[in-house]
Design a protein around this nucleic acid. Structure first.
Length: 283
DNA sequence: AAGTACACCTGTGTGC
DNA sequence: TGCACACAGGTGTACT
């Protein structure tokens, strides 16, 4: 499901239910997702206040009063849905459990947060808050694309000499953290760069142009509440609507949206994943 | 080191 | 209706 904009949308949706709230009960329905859950996860979550709910790349980070941080990754199909009433004023009833509800957090404020993940590529781990940046899932991530460390000079340096296609380079979380298949395709279209272009052979000017384009695509998507393709939902179950704004993703055979272009969108497979692009507009 | 193929897992859509 | 197959928003690991 989720790339940076979807994860950020989920995080914002969870804030009113979780930030500053206490986990009254943690129900863990299986021993693992992609990897085993940490030892005694339910016990280590129970009774903890969530001091802050942060995001790093596609990870949600819940800082607990115990000075541990719950690291959450949604994988391809992970969702976090809120039910009940975070204010505790009206009702505390919740919908019936569904298949693949793997972790359920009941907050003292009456809200319930349910982690559902059909494919189980998601993950959870607990680590000391002061060591989050050194955690093995986090430590090698590149800069946040919306942060100050992602800039023209940085990207030039990282792409310099690379023989890999731009598609692969931008999917590489070590170079830039948070892009996935959708937003790489969309950013490359907006920048007029072919996904097949060798990363090291993109001119400095075009690398420079890519930086604000990547930022803007992500901002646009966050503003739209992310993209809902099959099963993505915001924390309260709403659909995102950025999918209506796709220029190329999942538009194989459809008309290029560029005003003066009569070409149709092509799909190719690069390192096992679909790339969508306009062969006329993207060089 | 860099680049690539495969693995993990379930659900859905398509064509026969 | 059943079945086989392709494909799906991610990413660690094991190869060349």
């Amino acid at each position: 499901m989720p790339e940076l904009p979807e994860v950020e949308t989920v995080r914002c949706g969870l804030l009113p239910a979780m930030e500053g709230a206490v986990i009254a009960r943690a129900q863990v329905n299986r021993p693992d997702l992609r990897w085993p859950f940490p030892e005694h996860m339910a016990e280590r979550l129970t009774g903890q206040r969530v001091n802050a709910l942060r995001r790093r790349s596609k990870y949600i980070l819940a800082d607990l009063a115990s000075d541990e941080t719950l690291i959450i990754h949604l994988g391809m199909s992970g969702r976090m849905l809120i039910s009940g009433d975070p204010l505790g004023q009206f009702h505390h009833d919740h919908p019936a459990p569904e298949k693949h509800d793997h972790v359920v957090l009941d907050m003292e404020n009456g809200a319930r947060v349910t982690f559902n993940d059909a494919r189980r590529f998601g993950a959870m781990d607990l680590t000391p808050t002061k060591a989050v940046e050194q955690h093995w899932l986090i430590r090698d991530l590149g800069p946040e694309p919306l942060g100050n460390d992602f800039h023209e000079d940085y990207l030039k340096e990282r792409l310099n000499g690379r023989n890999t296609p731009m598609k692969s380079a931008l999917l590489d979380q070590k170079i830039i953290a948070g892009l996935g298949n959708i937003y790489v395709c969309e950013a490359l279209f907006r920048a007029g760069v072919s996904p097949k272009r060798k990363a090291g052979k993109l001119s400095a000017a075009r690398v420079g142009a890519l930086v604000p384009v990547i930022r803007q695509v992500l901002r646009d998507a966050i503003e739209a509440g992310g993209s809902s393709l099959k099963d993505y939902r915001q924390a309260h179950g709403e659909l995102g609507y950025f999918q209506h704004s796709f220029d190329v993703y999942d538009r194989e055979g459809e008309a290029c949206k560029s005003p003066d272009c009569d070409a149709t969108i092509k799909r190719i497979v690069q390192s096992g994943r679909s790339s969508f692009y306009c062969p006329k507009c993207q060089r």
